[in-house]
Design a protein around this nucleic acid. Structure first.
Lengths: 208, 208
DNA sequence: CGTATGCTCAAACGATCGTTTGAACTCGCC
DNA sequence: GGCGAGTTCAAACGATCGTTTGAGCATACG
């Protein structure tokens, strides 16, 4: 076993990092294992040795990030859920800020593009995997939104939360018109994004 | 030249139809020309004969739909732009309804998934192509929104229109939680989607 | 009728794909 | 030192990729 204190990351971690980037740039089928292992500086056979197959590697890329995102969202929500003084903006912040913070380390925005791709895939196995890893936390948020919006039907809440999700994904994936200006730091841009998303979404959720 | 009055579509049209579906399902690199030509019922070499290359076919798939979408949006906007009695909801309807109507014929929703994929691609040529075909109409809408929201800065308008776009794409691509219930027709679902999108987005645009 | 043109077809091209193989290497441990 | 498990490596596997080729077919025009 190589010493974990060594300067370089482990082979598995290097593969996961390169995979996240290349899957985002070229898609799951567009990124080849040869590109991937070359970018990671590991041998071609290392992917099948450590992950079994390319498909399992794809799942591992998702699991790593989704666990992180779900964890941060859950703890953020737990701090405000059920309290009488909690506002829509508080819950939205618990929903949005952890997602934006995912892009703190370099791979985060790329991961969002991977996620967008994944949902557009027709691969039922992958979609089910994502749904299973995503639904639980989403339920907690929708029920909290429902508590704060008692005049709306359950279905209406689903609709609006889904639209918030769309706006969030769009803003995070960096595929829209809004790009970070060169005169603002990444940190400032993230805070700006959060502010715009929260005020826009809060108004949308409370419509009528 | 085969008679255009014949029952079957032309080879080019059959290829374009199959391409739209398979690109949406499997991505541009994931859908092979062999799958595609087989699904279209044409010979493998027909793609290179009629379109020159697979990349040019991809562009043609986009051009066909984007021209359609841009046209419908422009005429819808022209009916309300600049008028004193025009509301935010009117402009939003001109922005949203033509997009939703794209899914009237079967390929529409699939096309939206293709579009989502395309924006997630790292292919600069493709992104520039899309941007060139998209920006013009977007400018008309943002300036009309800016007229109706004079208290907002230009940058604020950009942000909010971008978030509306994200919600729209998300709702159209069918990748979110909201799916058409089996007890509502596709037409009814489209109207429901438009209503939710417009009321949600109008509130978001007018926030504060 | 003969020929030119537009199109379709089966077959093949070289390149690249994910995966497998078996030998070589690197350790901790007896 | 030497065995053995864990890992890396170059090489090769068959399959499939986008593209090209050249023959064959259909229709239009002289």
């Amino acid at each position: 076993m190589p010493a974990p204190s060594a300067a370089a990351q482990s082979t598995k971690e290097r593969i996961l990092g390169a995979a996240e980037e290349l899957f985002a740039r070229h898609g799951f089928e567009g990124a080849s294992l040869r590109q991937l292992t070359s970018a990671a500086g590991v041998n071609l056979a290392a992917v099948n040795y450590h992950f079994g197959s390319k498909d399992r590697l794809v799942e591992e890329v998702f699991r790593r990030r989704l666990d992180q995102l779900n964890g941060h969202r859950s703890t953020a929500l737990a701090k405000v859920a059920g309290l009488p003084e909690t506002t829509i903006e508080d819950v939205l912040a618990a929903f949005i800020v952890p997602a934006l913070e995912l892009s703190h380390d370099a791979g985060g925005q790329l991961f969002m593009r991977v996620l967008v791709r994944a949902f557009a895939e027709d691969d039922d196995t992958l979609r089910k995997f994502l749904s299973d890893n995503y639904r639980h936390v989403m339920r907690m948020f929708t029920s909290e939104f429902a508590r704060l919006l008692p005049h709306l039907t359950k279905e209406e809440v689903y609709w609006r939360v889904d639209l918030v999700t769309g706006a969030l994904i769009h803003a995070m994936s960096g595929i829209g018109m809004i790009q970070r200006r060169s005169d603002v730091t990444e940190h400032e841009h993230r805070e700006l994004t959060a502010e715009h998303l929260i005020s826009f979404s809060a108004a949308g959720l409370m419509a009528r």
